[in-house]
Protein backbone atom coordinates (compact mmCIF):
# COMPACT_ATOMS: atom_id res chain seq x y z
CA UNK A 1 0.00 0.00 0.00
CA UNK A 2 2.77 2.42 0.96
CA UNK A 3 4.60 1.63 -2.27
CA UNK A 4 1.49 2.38 -4.30
CA UNK A 5 1.00 5.68 -2.51
CA UNK A 6 4.61 6.66 -3.14
CA UNK A 7 4.27 5.85 -6.82
CA UNK A 8 1.09 7.90 -7.04
CA UNK A 9 2.71 10.84 -5.29
CA UNK A 10 5.62 10.67 -7.71
CA UNK A 11 3.31 10.53 -10.69
CA UNK A 12 1.28 13.48 -9.43
CA UNK A 13 4.46 15.46 -8.94
CA UNK A 14 5.71 14.71 -12.43
CA UNK A 15 2.36 15.53 -14.00
CA UNK A 16 1.97 18.79 -12.06
CA UNK A 17 5.39 19.92 -13.20
CA UNK A 18 4.48 19.18 -16.79
CA UNK A 19 1.15 21.05 -16.65
CA UNK A 20 1.49 24.33 -18.50
CA UNK A 21 0.65 27.62 -16.85
CA UNK A 22 -2.46 29.59 -17.81
CA UNK A 23 -0.71 31.18 -20.77
CA UNK A 24 1.83 28.92 -22.39
CA UNK A 25 5.16 30.70 -22.96
CA UNK A 26 4.38 33.76 -20.82
CA UNK A 27 7.32 34.43 -18.51
CA UNK A 28 6.94 34.39 -14.78
CA UNK A 29 6.98 37.69 -12.95
CA UNK A 30 10.42 38.65 -11.72
CA UNK A 31 11.20 39.26 -8.09
CA UNK A 32 11.13 43.01 -8.54
CA UNK A 33 8.12 42.81 -10.85
CA UNK A 34 9.04 45.97 -12.74
CA UNK A 35 11.95 44.51 -14.71
CA UNK A 36 12.03 40.96 -16.01
CA UNK A 37 15.28 40.60 -17.91
CA UNK A 38 15.24 37.06 -19.23
CA UNK A 39 17.50 38.02 -22.13
CA UNK A 40 20.21 39.53 -19.88
CA UNK A 41 20.39 42.82 -21.71
CA UNK A 42 19.53 45.26 -18.93
CA UNK A 43 22.15 46.32 -16.39
CA UNK A 44 21.59 46.09 -12.65
CA UNK A 45 21.89 49.86 -12.40
CA UNK A 46 19.10 50.40 -14.89
CA UNK A 47 17.01 47.76 -13.18
CA UNK A 48 17.39 49.47 -9.80
CA UNK A 49 16.59 52.81 -11.38
CA UNK A 50 13.39 51.49 -12.96
CA UNK A 51 12.29 49.93 -9.67
CA UNK A 52 12.94 53.18 -7.80
CA UNK A 53 11.07 55.29 -10.32
CA UNK A 54 8.14 52.93 -10.28
CA UNK A 55 7.92 53.47 -6.56
CA UNK A 56 7.48 57.18 -7.17
CA UNK A 57 4.94 56.56 -9.90
CA UNK A 58 2.92 54.20 -7.75
CA UNK A 59 2.84 56.76 -4.98
CA UNK A 60 1.63 59.39 -7.41
CA UNK A 61 -1.09 57.48 -9.21
CA UNK A 62 -0.72 53.73 -8.84
CA UNK A 63 0.81 53.58 -12.30
CA UNK A 64 3.41 51.00 -13.22
CA UNK A 65 5.83 50.84 -16.14
CA UNK A 66 7.12 47.31 -16.55
CA UNK A 67 9.98 46.27 -18.80
CA UNK A 68 10.26 42.68 -19.98
CA UNK A 69 13.11 41.39 -22.13
CA UNK A 70 12.89 37.89 -23.56
CA UNK A 71 14.85 36.10 -26.23
CA UNK A 72 11.94 34.70 -28.24
CA UNK A 73 8.18 34.78 -28.36
CA UNK A 74 7.64 31.04 -28.81
CA UNK A 75 5.90 31.48 -32.11
CA UNK A 76 3.40 34.08 -30.87
CA UNK A 77 2.63 37.43 -32.39
CA UNK A 78 4.37 40.14 -30.38
CA UNK A 79 1.13 42.09 -29.85
CA UNK A 80 -0.61 39.00 -28.50
CA UNK A 81 2.36 38.12 -26.33
CA UNK A 82 2.45 41.62 -24.85
CA UNK A 83 -1.30 41.57 -24.26
CA UNK A 84 -1.11 38.24 -22.45
CA UNK A 85 1.78 39.37 -20.26
CA UNK A 86 -0.13 42.52 -19.35
CA UNK A 87 -3.27 40.56 -18.57
CA UNK A 88 -1.45 37.92 -16.56
CA UNK A 89 0.68 40.37 -14.58
CA UNK A 90 -2.13 42.95 -14.14
CA UNK A 91 0.07 45.99 -14.61
CA UNK A 92 -1.06 49.34 -13.22
CA UNK A 93 -3.76 50.14 -10.71
CA UNK A 94 -7.09 48.33 -10.88
CA UNK A 95 -8.92 51.63 -10.37
CA UNK A 96 -7.15 53.65 -13.08
CA UNK A 97 -5.81 50.91 -15.39
CA UNK A 98 -2.68 53.00 -15.91
CA UNK A 99 -0.02 50.42 -16.53
CA UNK A 100 2.50 50.35 -19.36
CA UNK A 101 4.44 47.34 -20.61
CA UNK A 102 7.57 47.53 -22.75
CA UNK A 103 8.40 44.14 -24.23
CA UNK A 104 11.68 43.44 -25.97
CA UNK A 105 12.13 40.25 -27.98
CA UNK A 106 15.86 40.34 -28.51
CA UNK A 107 16.26 37.19 -30.58
CA UNK A 108 13.42 38.30 -32.83
CA UNK A 109 14.80 41.83 -33.15
CA UNK A 110 11.47 43.28 -32.13
CA UNK A 111 9.74 45.27 -29.43
CA UNK A 112 6.26 46.29 -28.45
CA UNK A 113 4.76 48.71 -25.98
CA UNK A 114 1.21 48.46 -24.72
CA UNK A 115 -0.72 50.78 -22.44
CA UNK A 116 -3.48 50.15 -19.94
CA UNK A 117 -7.11 50.84 -20.68
CA UNK A 118 -7.08 54.01 -18.62
CA UNK A 119 -4.22 55.54 -20.62
CA UNK A 120 -5.56 54.89 -24.12
CA UNK A 121 -6.95 58.36 -24.61
CA UNK A 122 -4.07 60.12 -22.82
CA UNK A 123 -1.19 58.25 -24.42
CA UNK A 124 -2.37 56.95 -27.76
CA UNK A 125 -0.70 54.15 -29.66
CA UNK A 126 0.47 56.72 -32.17
CA UNK A 127 2.23 58.66 -29.45
CA UNK A 128 3.82 55.47 -28.16
CA UNK A 129 5.00 54.78 -31.67
CA UNK A 130 6.66 58.21 -31.81
CA UNK A 131 8.30 57.70 -28.44
CA UNK A 132 9.64 54.29 -29.45
CA UNK A 133 11.03 55.70 -32.64
CA UNK A 134 12.67 58.62 -30.96
CA UNK A 135 13.96 57.09 -27.73
CA UNK A 136 14.41 53.38 -28.30
CA UNK A 137 14.85 52.52 -31.95
CA UNK A 138 18.39 53.87 -32.50
CA UNK A 139 19.86 52.12 -29.46
CA UNK A 140 17.87 48.96 -30.15
CA UNK A 141 19.17 48.83 -33.71
CA UNK A 142 22.74 49.14 -32.45
CA UNK A 143 22.10 46.49 -29.78
CA UNK A 144 22.56 48.95 -26.90
CA UNK A 145 19.35 47.74 -25.32
CA UNK A 146 20.16 49.05 -21.85
CA UNK A 147 20.55 52.63 -23.05
CA UNK A 148 17.42 52.45 -25.19
CA UNK A 149 15.33 51.06 -22.35
CA UNK A 150 16.56 53.76 -20.01
CA UNK A 151 15.75 56.58 -22.43
CA UNK A 152 12.35 55.22 -23.32
CA UNK A 153 11.50 54.55 -19.70
CA UNK A 154 12.35 58.12 -18.74
CA UNK A 155 10.14 59.48 -21.49
CA UNK A 156 7.25 57.21 -20.62
CA UNK A 157 7.63 58.03 -16.93
CA UNK A 158 7.22 61.71 -17.70
CA UNK A 159 4.29 61.02 -20.00
CA UNK A 160 2.40 58.99 -17.39
CA UNK A 161 3.26 61.41 -14.57
CA UNK A 162 1.99 64.33 -16.63
CA UNK A 163 -1.38 62.64 -16.97
CA UNK A 164 -1.82 62.81 -13.21
CA UNK A 165 0.24 65.81 -12.13
CA UNK A 166 -1.34 69.24 -11.66
CA UNK A 167 1.79 71.19 -12.41
CA UNK A 168 4.68 70.80 -14.76
CA UNK A 169 6.78 67.71 -14.60
CA UNK A 170 10.09 68.12 -16.32
CA UNK A 171 12.23 65.35 -17.64
CA UNK A 172 15.31 64.56 -15.67
CA UNK A 173 18.13 62.41 -16.76
CA UNK A 174 19.66 60.03 -14.28
CA UNK A 175 22.65 62.33 -13.87
CA UNK A 176 20.38 65.04 -12.36
CA UNK A 177 19.35 62.86 -9.42
CA UNK A 178 22.70 63.48 -7.79
CA UNK A 179 22.45 67.27 -8.02
CA UNK A 180 18.94 67.27 -6.52
CA UNK A 181 20.20 65.26 -3.57
CA UNK A 182 23.07 67.69 -3.08
CA UNK A 183 20.66 70.64 -2.98
CA UNK A 184 18.48 68.88 -0.46
CA UNK A 185 21.46 68.10 1.75
CA UNK A 186 22.57 71.72 1.58
CA UNK A 187 19.12 72.93 2.62
CA UNK A 188 19.12 70.53 5.53
CA UNK A 189 22.51 71.83 6.65
CA UNK A 190 21.30 75.43 6.46
CA UNK A 191 18.21 74.53 8.44
CA UNK A 192 20.27 72.86 11.13
CA UNK A 193 22.51 75.95 11.40
CA UNK A 194 19.45 78.20 11.66
CA UNK A 195 17.99 76.00 14.39
CA UNK A 196 21.24 76.12 16.36
CA UNK A 197 21.43 79.90 16.06
CA UNK A 198 17.82 80.33 17.18
CA UNK A 199 18.30 78.00 20.12
CA UNK A 200 21.37 79.93 21.16
CA UNK A 201 19.53 83.25 20.88
CA UNK A 202 16.58 81.94 22.85
CA UNK A 203 18.91 80.56 25.44
CA UNK A 204 20.56 83.94 25.75
CA UNK A 205 17.20 85.72 26.09
CA UNK A 206 16.02 83.24 28.70
CA UNK A 207 19.08 83.88 30.79
CA UNK A 208 18.43 87.60 30.54
CA UNK A 209 14.80 87.20 31.67
CA UNK A 210 15.70 84.96 34.52
CA UNK A 211 18.00 87.60 36.00
CA UNK A 212 15.16 90.14 36.26
CA UNK A 213 12.02 91.28 34.56
CA UNK A 214 8.34 91.71 35.07
CA UNK A 215 5.87 89.12 36.15
CA UNK A 216 3.63 90.19 33.31
CA UNK A 217 5.25 88.00 30.79
CA UNK A 218 4.49 84.95 32.85
CA UNK A 219 0.79 85.40 32.55
CA UNK A 220 -1.25 83.74 29.84
CA UNK A 221 -1.73 87.09 28.19
CA UNK A 222 2.01 87.58 28.19
CA UNK A 223 2.63 84.21 26.82
CA UNK A 224 0.38 84.68 23.92
CA UNK A 225 2.28 87.81 23.02
CA UNK A 226 5.44 85.89 22.69
CA UNK A 227 6.01 84.21 19.37
CA UNK A 228 5.52 80.47 19.56
CA UNK A 229 8.80 78.58 19.71
CA UNK A 230 7.57 76.13 17.15
CA UNK A 231 6.85 78.78 14.56
CA UNK A 232 10.32 80.27 14.95
CA UNK A 233 12.26 77.05 14.94
CA UNK A 234 10.15 75.22 12.38
CA UNK A 235 8.69 77.71 9.97
CA UNK A 236 5.81 76.28 8.02
CA UNK A 237 6.76 75.95 4.37
CA UNK A 238 4.95 78.24 2.02
CA UNK A 239 2.55 76.53 -0.36
CA UNK A 240 4.00 78.45 -3.26
CA UNK A 241 7.51 77.21 -2.71
CA UNK A 242 8.96 75.19 -5.54
CA UNK A 243 8.42 71.50 -5.06
CA UNK A 244 11.35 70.36 -7.13
CA UNK A 245 11.39 68.44 -10.33
CA UNK A 246 8.97 65.72 -9.41
CA UNK A 247 5.91 66.01 -7.29
CA UNK A 248 5.92 62.29 -7.05
CA UNK A 249 7.87 62.22 -3.80
CA UNK A 250 4.96 63.85 -1.96
CA UNK A 251 1.87 61.87 -1.25
CA UNK A 252 -1.14 63.17 -3.11
CA UNK A 253 -4.12 64.60 -1.30
CA UNK A 254 -6.16 61.62 -2.47
CA UNK A 255 -3.82 59.15 -0.90
CA UNK A 256 -5.66 57.21 1.73
CA UNK A 257 -2.78 55.31 3.19
CA UNK A 258 -0.90 58.35 4.47
CA UNK A 259 2.33 57.29 2.83
CA UNK A 260 5.51 59.07 3.68
CA UNK A 261 7.69 60.68 1.04
CA UNK A 262 9.86 57.52 0.82
CA UNK A 263 8.88 55.65 -2.34
CA UNK A 264 8.43 51.98 -1.77
CA UNK A 265 7.28 50.08 -4.85
CA UNK A 266 4.67 47.44 -4.21
CA UNK A 267 6.54 44.86 -6.27
CA UNK A 268 3.37 43.35 -7.67
CA UNK A 269 0.65 44.04 -10.20
CA UNK A 270 -2.03 46.50 -9.17
CA UNK A 271 -4.83 44.74 -11.02
CA UNK A 272 -4.72 46.93 -14.11
CA UNK A 273 -6.04 45.76 -17.46
CA UNK A 274 -5.33 46.59 -21.06
CA UNK A 275 -7.47 46.22 -24.14
CA UNK A 276 -4.49 45.53 -26.33
CA UNK A 277 -3.27 47.86 -29.04
CA UNK A 278 -0.03 49.70 -28.45
CA UNK A 279 2.81 50.11 -30.91
CA UNK A 280 6.00 48.39 -31.92
CA UNK A 281 8.97 48.34 -34.23
CA UNK A 282 8.43 49.83 -37.62
CA UNK A 283 9.17 48.20 -40.90
CA UNK A 284 8.33 44.76 -39.58
Amino acid sequence: MKKILKIWALLVMIISMAVPTAFAGIPEKSQSFYVADYANVISQETENYIVEKNGQLENLCGGQIVVVAVDFLDGMDIEDYAYKVFKEWQIGSAEKNNGVLLLLAIGEDNYWCIQGKGLESEISSGEIDDMLWEYLEEDFASADYDAGVRKFFDKMFVAVSEVYSEGDVTETKSADTGSVLRIILLLIKILVVVIIIVVIIKGTRKNRYDTGGTAERRTDAGRTNRPSARSVIMPRPSRTRSRGTYRTTRPTSGSSSGRTSVSRPSGRGGGGISRGGGAGRRGR
Binding site: S124, S125, G126, E127, I128, D129, W133, G277, A279, R282
Partner: peptide, 10 residues
Protein backbone atom coordinates in the same frame (compact mmCIF):
# COMPACT_ATOMS: atom_id res chain seq x y z
CA UNK B 1 2.83 56.98 -39.15
CA UNK B 2 1.16 58.00 -35.91
CA UNK B 3 -2.31 57.87 -37.45
CA UNK B 4 -1.62 54.55 -39.12
CA UNK B 5 -0.43 53.11 -35.81
CA UNK B 6 -3.54 54.38 -34.04
CA UNK B 7 -5.68 52.98 -36.83
CA UNK B 8 -4.14 49.52 -36.59
CA UNK B 9 -3.96 49.38 -32.81
CA UNK B 10 -7.72 49.82 -32.67
Amino acid sequence: RSLYTDFNSR
